[in-house]
Each structure stands twice: as C-alpha cells, then as structure tokens.
Amino acid sequence: MNIFRLTGDLSHLAAIIILLLKIWKSRSCAGISGKSQILFAIVFTARYLDLLTSFISVYNTSMKVIYIGCAYATVYLIYAKFRATYDGNHDSFRVEFLVVPVGGLAVLINHTFSPLEILWTFSIYLESVAILPQLFMISKTGEAETITTHYLFCLGMYRTLYLFNWVWRFYFEGFFDMIAIVAGLVQTVLYCDFFYLYVTKVLKGKKLSLPA
C-alpha cells in the first residue's frame, strides 16, 4: 500500500458516496446515466468474485463489499426508487457496443485462460470505458449539475492516482500488470477533456455547460 493507491481508493469511495448522496438528498437522478451505473455494478461483480476464493486483507475485503453494495444501491435508486426522475431519453448510449467488444478482448488478451481471470480482465477493460454513457449524456444535454461534476472528478482522479501507484510499484516492488496499466491509461485519457472543463469552469464557480 502506498499513498497513491490509498488516496486513489478513497477518491473512488468519495465518488461513489457523492453520487449516492446526490440522488438521495435531491430525491432525483436527473442527469445521471443509469447505463454507466449498471456497467459499474457489472464491473465490481465480475472483478470481486475473488471475495469467495481468496483473502488479501480486511481493508481489501471491506472496500470490495462497500463498492459492490453502493453500486447496487445506486442502480436501485435510479431504476426503482427514483425511476420517475430518470432521464432515459438522454441516456441513449448503446452499451452493447462496449460490452461485446470488451468481452471479446477479455477472452483474447488475458493473463490466464480461466473463468475467474477472464472475468477479472473483462471488468478491467469494461471499467475503462464504463463512464462513456455518462459523458455521452452530458454532451447530449450540454450541461451537468455541479455535484455531478464533483462525482466525475473524483472518479477520474481515482484511476489517475492508480497510474502513479503503478509507477511506484514498478520502481519499488518490481510489480507491473500490463492489462491494468493499459486499461488504466485509456480510462484516464477519457477524462482529460472533462478535467479541463472542471478546472476552467467548475472550480471558478461556473456551472459546467457546453457550447451549443
């Protein structure tokens, strides 16, 4: 455990909690892509099946349980409890264009050709693109609530901090996982445009709105 990984995990946790609280307090999931949230629930489920097979640490297990629990709670709030506020018309990204190629890639490029390992690889690839329906929704409506941008910033920072973690682990532990690193790079690059808007607009007190 190093500082980049810990702050990355906490940033990830903060993102998840911010989103849950935003929906719960406003009693609305307007502007949130339910499709992205379903993809994240699939990501956590596929990746953390090792909860049943291996124990790493109390920290590791509890974070996994919290991430999975929160992901399903978010999906429940969007598709059941506050379904009336869900903006399905603007959440029109075709997720099969992500899931199918990512599934194929996981079968072709993985560390070990075993069911659990392929599911882990699938989750890593899928996570790197799971935010696309949300970014697509924002580009379609042309705006995002400020609290939604805080969520996206924390979520983007999480994988960015993991990149530093991987550099650290490579130098000090000789550890590297090429699949995670390449997918993490892709994931971080997808947020670059958003990071720019967050710094130039949201941090200066303006609402995030895109030119028509």
Binding site: H12, S54, Y162, D177, A180
Partner: peptide, 10 residues
C-alpha cells in the same frame, strides 16, 4: 512481474 497470487488492488 505479474502477481501470480491474485489481484491485490481494487
């Protein structure tokens, strides 16, 4: 080196 003992990251 890939960690053969499993994935220890989240």
């Amino acid at each position: 080196e890939y960690n053969i003992y499993g994935h220890d990251e989240l």
